[in-house]
Amino acid sequence: SLSVDNKKFWATVESSEHSFEVPIYAETLDEALELAEWQYVPAGFEVTRVRPCVAP
């Protein structure tokens, strides 16, 4: 099958004044980091952490 098993990760994104967490959907932690950097670094943010979303 061609289905992709995307998992939810939380990326911590920082600017000079703010820090916030955004959801990233990817297959692996490395891919989540790449996606977060691709989305947020060009906008002037720094991705400081990516972690798996742990269900309660």
Results as ranks from 00 to 15, higher is better:
S1E: 12
S1N: 11
S1M: 11
L2A: 13
L2P: 10
L2C: 15
L2M: 11
L2D: 09
L2H: 13
L2R: 10
L2V: 12
V4I: 11
V4F: 08
V4N: 13
D5W: 08
D5C: 15
N6K: 15
N6R: 14
K7D: 03
F9G: 01
F9R: 00
F9Q: 00
W10S: 03
A11N: 01
T12I: 05
T12N: 04
T12E: 03
T12G: 02
T12H: 05
V13T: 01
E14A: 12
E14F: 06
S15Q: 05
S15T: 09
S15R: 07
S15G: 08
S15I: 07
S15D: 10
S16C: 08
E17C: 09
E17F: 12
E17S: 14
E17L: 10
H18W: 12
H18P: 01
H18N: 08
H18D: 07
S19H: 08
F20V: 03
F20H: 04
F20R: 03
E21S: 05
E21I: 09
V22I: 07
V22T: 04
V22M: 04
P23Y: 09
P23A: 14
P23S: 06
I24E: 00
I24K: 01
I24N: 00
I24T: 00
Y25L: 05
Y25V: 04
Y25W: 14
A26V: 01
A26L: 01
A26N: 01
E27H: 14
E27F: 10
E27T: 14
E27C: 07
T28Y: 03
T28P: 00
T28R: 03
T28K: 03
L29D: 03
L29E: 06
L29W: 10
D30N: 10
D30L: 13
D30P: 05
D30V: 10
E31S: 06
E31W: 04
E31Q: 13
E31P: 01
E31K: 15
A32Y: 01
A32H: 01
A32T: 00
L33M: 11
L33P: 00
L33W: 15
E34R: 15
E34Q: 14
E34S: 11
E34M: 15
A36R: 01
A36Q: 02
E37S: 08
E37K: 15
E37N: 12
Q39A: 10
Q39F: 15
Y40N: 04
Y40A: 04
V41L: 10
V41M: 09
V41T: 11
P42Y: 06
P42I: 08
P42Q: 08
P42H: 11
A43L: 15
A43I: 10
G44L: 00
G44W: 02
G44C: 03
F45I: 02
F45T: 02
F45R: 04
F45Y: 12
V47H: 04
V47N: 02
V47D: 02
V47I: 08
V47Q: 01
T48N: 03
T48M: 04
T48Q: 03
T48F: 00
T48K: 07
R49S: 15
R49W: 06
R49V: 08
V50D: 01
V50L: 06
R51Y: 10
R51C: 05
R51L: 07
R51W: 09
C53N: 09
C53K: 03
V54G: 08
V54C: 10
V54T: 12
V54N: 11
A55T: 12
A55I: 10
P56L: 09
